[in-house]
Write a protein that binds this DNA or RNA. Structure first.
Lengths: 151, 151
DNA sequence: CAGTCCATGTCAAAATATTGACATGAGTCC
DNA sequence: GGACTCATGTCAATATTTTGACATGGACTG
């Protein structure tokens, strides 16, 4: 018999999912007091890092659809944390910016998240951390469809 | 200024999310021809590995709520891939089992997923693979609330 | 035994996300 | 310029997931 039968516990894919779930849960708990969801935090963070991004770019950076990102953005705009012009300046894309309040909240939220990440990798040595990062990056690239190696 | 400001690209948490998203997308593509979603595949796999599991146990193993797992289970039962007694044998929990058809489909699906995982970690050495697995496990445990160190 | 606690399964409602479709502006190729 | 393609933003409909609440059966404790 062919042996695709290691238990899920021993599979990298399951370990990935489990770690991601644990991280998400921890972030959720930490951000709740600020009134932020993980998606909202990620949105603020990305905008803060790259002011003027379009909604589509944000969606790709957060691995969700444009439509669902738009809902998140709308909420942040209503809370005056993010500003977006109502009309497109140069093309069809609406550049998003943090308001001063958004910048402040993003800083506070990021401090909390940074703590969680630090706790998560606390038991790893510096070398192990960079290898973990490298391994995850390699996995991502291996699955990104640059497939199609040509003859 | 305090420096919680490495860009997301360099953060383990983001790398985790990204790798998980890539894996999920690849699995989705691979399983679509079989008429299975990732959640359905995971469900079949877990039941196959531990026949007689309760719905709540499955939900925990899949990192979703009991309610949302129930929706998945219902679909699998209607397709005669999973069987569950309508009344609880010993306690309140309803043990889930694979039907013969479910077992066959689970095998086929698992072969596809195993291929994807193999592709994902293809560029890593055996040592790097086990270190990646160990690193992910360590991260998970570090976030699992055994917190509460006592005085 | 009564009382308490905990896990399970389920219902209903709400939040969240995706798919599909469409209009618009920009770039490209002829 | 005209036709094409492509990316963006948005609307509507659908699917998926979570939250909150409740009843039930078992275990544990007094």
């Amino acid at each position: 018999m062919s042996p695709p039968h290691p238990p899920v516990e021993a599979r990298v894919g399951y370990a990935l999912k489990r770690a991601q779930a644990a991280l998400r849960a921890a972030m959720d708990d930490a951000l709740r007091p600020l009134g932020l969801t993980v998606a909202q935090y990620a949105c603020l963070q990305l905008i803060g890092e790259r002011p003027g991004v379009s909604g589509s770019e944000l969606a790709r950076g957060m691995f969700v659809s444009r439509q669902s990102l738009n809902v998140v953005l709308r909420g942040l705009q209503e809370r005056e944390l993010v500003h977006r012009p109502s009309t497109a300046p140069q093309a069809r894309s609406l550049p998003a910016e943090l308001t001063p309040a958004g910048r402040r909240l993003a800083r506070r939220a990021d401090a909390l998240v940074a703590d969680i990440e630090a706790q998560m990798i606390a038991v790893l040595s510096a070398r192990q951390r960079s290898q973990l990062l490298a391994g995850l990056t390699a996995c991502t690239e291996a699955l990104s469809n640059d497939a199609a190696w040509k003859p």
